[in-house]
Computed example of a mutant assay.
Amino acid sequence: MIGIFLITHGTLGESLIQCTCHVLNKRPVQIAQLGVSAQDDPLDVLPLARSMLGWVDSGDGVLLLTDIYGATPSNIAAKLIVPGQFELVAGVNLPMLLRVLTYRDRDMPTLLKRAVTGACDGVLHVNPD
């Protein structure tokens, strides 16, 4: 099973996990989050992120999810990428996370595609008609 590791601003990652627990009525296994605050030095956070990555990796790889591409959490996560083993997708939202949890028993290329489509499919204009 592919592990899931969220690196986000503040408490966003934990909030997404809590929402997922509500929807699924349980806490998923092999999932962790690291919240980065404005006061955190990225060089100090990186060793902790590497250690936490190991918490969710059972040997099948880890999908890293972050909120805003180019921001500090994303930059920290980018230093953890090992193509095919530790992959990163930016723009995490609840539909993406739910989709990822549904397809994490598949291979990494499939999971990457499902993560992006899950996020995009979850964004739509709701018309009251």
Rank of each mutant, 00 (worst) to 15 (best):
D67K: 00
S58P: 00
F86Q: 08
G61H: 07
L12V: 14
M96V: 04
L63D: 07
Q85N: 12
L94V: 07
R27Q: 14
L24P: 01
I31Y: 00
G54R: 10
T8S: 10
T72Q: 03
G84C: 13
L43Y: 06
D60L: 08
V56D: 09
L53Y: 07
G13M: 01
L65P: 10
I76F: 02
T11H: 13
D121M: 12
Y103L: 03
F86Y: 15
D129A: 15
Y69T: 11
A71Y: 09
V116S: 07
K79D: 09
K79G: 03
L124M: 14
I31V: 15
T20N: 10
L16A: 06
M1G: 06
L80W: 06
A38M: 15
D40S: 02
G3E: 01
C21R: 11
T102F: 03
V36W: 07
A78L: 15
L94D: 00
I17C: 08
K113M: 08
A32P: 10
R27M: 10
S37H: 08
D129T: 13
R106S: 14
R106K: 07
E87N: 14
H9Q: 07
L64P: 07
L34R: 06
L98T: 03
V62S: 04
S51T: 15
V100E: 00
V36C: 03
T110C: 08
L98K: 01
M1H: 03
L34S: 05
V56L: 10
M96A: 07
I17Y: 08
T72H: 06
L63H: 08
T72R: 02
L12S: 06
D44G: 12
F5W: 02
N25Q: 14
W55N: 15
P28S: 09
P42A: 05
D107K: 04
T102Y: 04
V116Y: 02
S15I: 03
I7S: 00
L24T: 01
A38T: 13
L94N: 05
L98V: 08
E87V: 08
R27W: 07
T117P: 03
G70T: 11
L101Y: 01
M108V: 09
V56I: 14
L6T: 01
S37Q: 07
I81F: 04
G13V: 04
D67N: 04
P95K: 11
S58C: 15
N127W: 12
V123E: 04
P42H: 07
G84D: 13
K26H: 14
V29P: 00
T20S: 15
I76T: 02
A71M: 14
G13E: 01
L46W: 13
Y69D: 09
S58T: 15
L64D: 03
V100W: 00
T20W: 09
S74N: 10
C19I: 05
G84S: 12
L16C: 05
G91K: 05
L12P: 13
V92K: 01
T102N: 02
S51G: 10
L48G: 08
R104W: 02
V116H: 01
L48A: 13
S74F: 09
V126I: 15
A90G: 06
T8P: 15
Y69R: 11
V89S: 01
L43T: 12
T72L: 04
Y103P: 04
